[in-house]
Structure formats: structure tokens, C-alpha cells
């Protein structure tokens, strides 16, 4: 009975992994198939011409560049806004805290379509009301950045808040007692402690922004980002050039994740060695 249950659990896990990975594998395979339609059957032989087609597709390269610019801007802004709101929410309590926290969280729950339309209408109507042609009030990528930040900042806030909750407030008080200014406490003590969460938040914001479609679609004006461009290609006919680009993105993500993991393991090993060294030293001291 127990064995059967274990096998069922393994089967479920295998099926789940297939469900997650199979679409990616099929899609990557189609990037190398010498077939005008992106599919792996019928297989017409290996080719790299879709990678050339991808590089020669100027519109796609521009869209890719736009996506990266937007993603970097969103990551920077979200980290600033998210960290600030996490520090604020962590330092207050009671009803105000609940209210602020709920407000931040609700932006994650609100459908992206609604965020997109509201951002667009707010800024353009504000521009109309003032009667200005200033670029900030016209649709464009900067509005996409603002719209995306409004909910991605909340994700960064969650990550930073989780780390803040294990922060020892005594450190802060000690530093203040010893004559540090509040700015010094923030820069020397709080931010270094939050650094891992801020880094993770920045990465999350970056990737969330890359895959965002709903908000960008409404705010982009005439500009293309990758998701918008790919979707317009789906309407007009897809070529495997898209698969080639997606394959490269998956590859980059995998390599980055691998580097991060190797780095983390090396750090853990160094840490363990250091601890063992310290233990040996203290044991030696006791023996003497």
C-alpha cells in the first residue's frame, strides 16, 4: 500500500514536470526546425536560419530593446518605492498599517487591464486638463513604466517586508545611541541587511516587467515591446524567429540561474569551512 502511494506520488510529480517543461521543449525544438511554421512535426532538418531571421528583423530587435529599457526602469523604480513602503509599513502598527498594507496588496490583485486603462486615462486626461503637449502626458513607454511600477512595487515590498520582519531593531537603536544619524543608520545598517531581499526584488520586478502584456498594451502608444510585438505576429502569422528569440531567453535565464546556484553553494561552503575553523580554534583554546 505504502509503495503504491509512493509510486503514485512519483508519477504525479513526473507528470507535473512534463506539464511544465514540455511546452518549453517543443517551442525550443521548433526554433531549429527548417519549416516555415513553428512546429516540430514534420521535422525537416536542423537549421539556424531562424536565428539569422531574428537578428535581421529590425522591428523585433527594437521591441526587444524597448522591453529591456522598460524592465530596467521598472526594476529601479519598484525597488525604491517597494523598499520605502516596506520600511514605512514595518515601522507603524494598528489600523493605519492594515489600511496601507491592504492598499499595496490590492494593486497585485487588480486585473492588469484595469491598471492599464486607469494609468492611460489618468495621465492623458490630466494633460488635456492642463492643456499641455508635454511628452509625459502622452501615451508611450514611460506610461507603461509607471503603470507596471504601480503593482510590481507591491511585490518588491512583500519581499523586503519579509526580510525586515527578522531584522533586530536593537541594532538600529544601538547605532542611534552611539551617535549615528538616521541617514547613517539607513545606509550602514538597514540597507546592507536588506540587500539580499532588494536584489531578489529587483530581479522579480525585471522579469515581471518583461512578461507584462496587459498594462503595456494600453499605455504603450505607438511603441512596441516584445510581448506586444509577438502578439501582433500571432495575428498576422508566426515564423519560428519568435521561437529562436524565446529559446535564447530561456537559455540566458537557465545560465543565470545556474551561475546564481553555483555561487550560492560556494558561499555556503566557505561559510561552513569558516565555522568549522572557528569551532576548532575554540576547542583548542579550551584544551589549553
Amino acid at each position: 500500500m505504502h509503495k503504491l502511494r509512493m509510486n503514485l506520488a512519483r508519477l504525479y510529480m513526473g507528470l507535473f514536470l512534463v506539464f511544465m517543461i514540455a511546452p518549453l521543449a517543443v517551442m525550443s525544438g521548433a526554433a531549429f526546425n527548417d519549416n516555415r511554421l513553428p512546429s516540430i512535426v514534420p521535422w525537416k532538418g536542423w537549421t539556424t536560419r531562424w536565428f539569422e531571421a531574428m537578428i535581421n528583423d529590425d522591428r523585433m530587435m527594437v521591441a526587444f530593446g524597448n522591453t529591456l529599457v522598460v524592465a530596467v526602469a521598472v526594476a529601479l523604480l519598484s525597488v525604491i518605492v517597494g523598499t520605502a513602503s516596506a520600511i514605512l509599513i514595518n515601522s507603524i502598527s494598528g489600523r493605519v498599517r492594515t489600511l496601507l498594507y491592504s492598499m499595496m496588496i490590492s494593486t497585485i490583485l487588480i486585473p492588469g487591464v484595469v491598471i492599464g486603462i486607469s494609468t492611460m486615462i489618468l495621465w492623458t486626461r490630466m494633460g488635456n486638463a492642463i492643456g499641455t503637449e508635454f511628452f509625459l502626458f502622452n501615451p508611450g513607454l514611460h506610461l507603461s513604466v509607471l503603470g507596471q511600477v504601480s503593482y510590481i512595487a507591491a511585490m518588491v515590498m512583500l519581499l523586503v517586508l519579509a526580510r525586515l520582519q527578522s531584522f533586530d531593531a536593537g541594532l538600529e537603536e544601538a547605532a542611534l545611541d552611539l551617535g549615528a544619524s538616521h541617514a547613517q543608520v539607513l545606509r550602514r545598517i538597514l540597507l546592507p541587511y536588506l540587500y539580499p531581499a532588494i536584489g531578489a526584488g529587483g530581479a522579480v520586478a525585471f522579469f515581471q516587467s518583461i512578461e507584462n502584456y496587459n498594462v503595456t498594451q494600453f499605455t504603450r502608444g505607438g511603441m512596441d515591446t516584445l510581448t506586444v510585438y509577438v502578439f501582433s505576429m500571432v495575428r498576422s502569422g508566426v515564423t519560428p524567429a519568435i521561437n529562436a528569440l524565446a529559446f535564447l531567453l530561456i537559455l540566458v535565464t537557465l545560465v543565470l540561474a545556474l551561475i546564481y546556484e553555483i555561487n550560492r553553494r560556494r558561499m555556503a561552503r566557505v561559510e561552513a569551512e569558516r565555522e568549522a575553523e572557528a569551532r576548532r580554534a575554540s576547542a583548542l583554546e579550551e584544551a589549553l
Partner: peptide, 12 residues
């Protein structure tokens, strides 16, 4: 709730 909202708001 989270998954419901994500799928209710999806367009692509």
C-alpha cells in the same frame, strides 16, 4: 483568490 484574479484579468 490570487490565482482567480490573475486569470480573470488575463488578456493575452
Amino acid at each position: 483568490v490570487m490565482v482567480f484574479m490573475l486569470s480573470a484579468g488575463s488578456l493575452l
